[in-house]
Amino acid sequence: MSNSFSDRIKNFILFSKATNDNEKIKKKYFELVKIFHPDLNNEIDKEISNENMIVLNYVYEQLIKNKVNGKYCLTNEYGIKEYISDKALYIYKLGFIEFRKAITIMLENPGNKEGTSYEIIGHLYKSYKYFKEVIKLDKNGNWGRASIVQLHHAYSMNEHITRGLTGSDEKGLVEI
């Protein structure tokens, strides 16, 4: 096993994906803290060590924060927590929530295209990224097929919104 920071982070991520036990992930995290924390290891340059800890803390937070007992924790658009074991479904729902935010903003501000267009496009872009990730994960499954449909709707909505942003002589669209 390599001793480089990037290799250890990659191994930490692979380890966490292989287990559903948050306590084991936490233990592995603290092992890495002992190696890379600037106050615990004088052999590493303080500045590099601080940067490593920022990355390590971020990775740990992302690995733990959305998982409870091996399931992904999602707060849906109604504020209700859902616990989902299927990663493709979890990411699909994240995309669908972003897509619904875009629709809600559009419906609540029908005469204010200039003021809300970029906010809507931002949510569409996030939904696009989530749906593309689901398609990679679940090429032939239900969530992959549903993501293809949602991508089509997101593209259509983006085209509708961006047409309102261009002048009458311009034909360009804002790409998501």
Rank of each mutant, 00 (worst) to 15 (best):
M1K: 11
S2T: 09
F5M: 00
D7Y: 05
R8P: 05
R8K: 09
I13S: 03
S16N: 01
S16R: 03
T19C: 01
N20H: 08
D21G: 06
N22W: 14
K24G: 06
K24N: 12
K26M: 02
K26I: 02
K27N: 05
K28P: 04
K28I: 00
L32S: 03
K34V: 10
I35H: 07
I35C: 12
F36S: 13
P38R: 15
D39L: 10
E43H: 14
E43C: 10
E47N: 15
I48E: 15
I48F: 12
S49R: 13
N50Q: 14
E51R: 05
N52T: 05
N52F: 13
V55G: 10
V55M: 06
N57H: 12
Y58H: 15
Y60F: 07
K65D: 00
N66H: 10
K67E: 02
K67N: 08
K71H: 04
Y72D: 00
C73V: 07
C73T: 07
L74I: 07
L74F: 09
L74N: 08
E77N: 11
Y78G: 08
K81F: 08
E82I: 06
I84K: 02
S85T: 03
S85K: 09
D86T: 02
A88C: 02
A88Y: 00
A88W: 00
Y90L: 04
K93F: 12
G95M: 02
F96M: 04
I97H: 07
I97L: 06
F99G: 05
F99E: 08
K101N: 13
I103W: 11
I103H: 05
I103M: 13
T104C: 12
T104V: 12
I105S: 09
M106C: 11
E108M: 14
E108G: 14
P110L: 04
N112E: 15
E114I: 11
G115R: 01
G115D: 03
I120E: 00
G122H: 00
K126V: 13
K126F: 05
S127P: 05
S127V: 01
S127Q: 01
Y128V: 04
Y128M: 09
K129V: 07
K129G: 05
K129Q: 06
V134P: 02
V134R: 06
V134N: 03
I135P: 00
L137F: 08
D138Y: 09
D138E: 06
D138K: 01
K139Y: 12
N142C: 12
W143V: 15
R145C: 09
R145H: 13
R145K: 13
A146P: 05
S147Y: 03
I148G: 12
V149K: 10
Q150C: 11
Q150P: 03
H152D: 15
H152P: 11
H153W: 11
H153D: 13
A154P: 15
Y155V: 14
M157H: 10
M157T: 14
H160A: 15
I161V: 10
T162C: 03
T162Y: 01
R163C: 12
G164D: 05
G164P: 00
L165W: 01
E170T: 09
E170K: 15
K171L: 12
K171F: 05
G172V: 14
I176C: 08
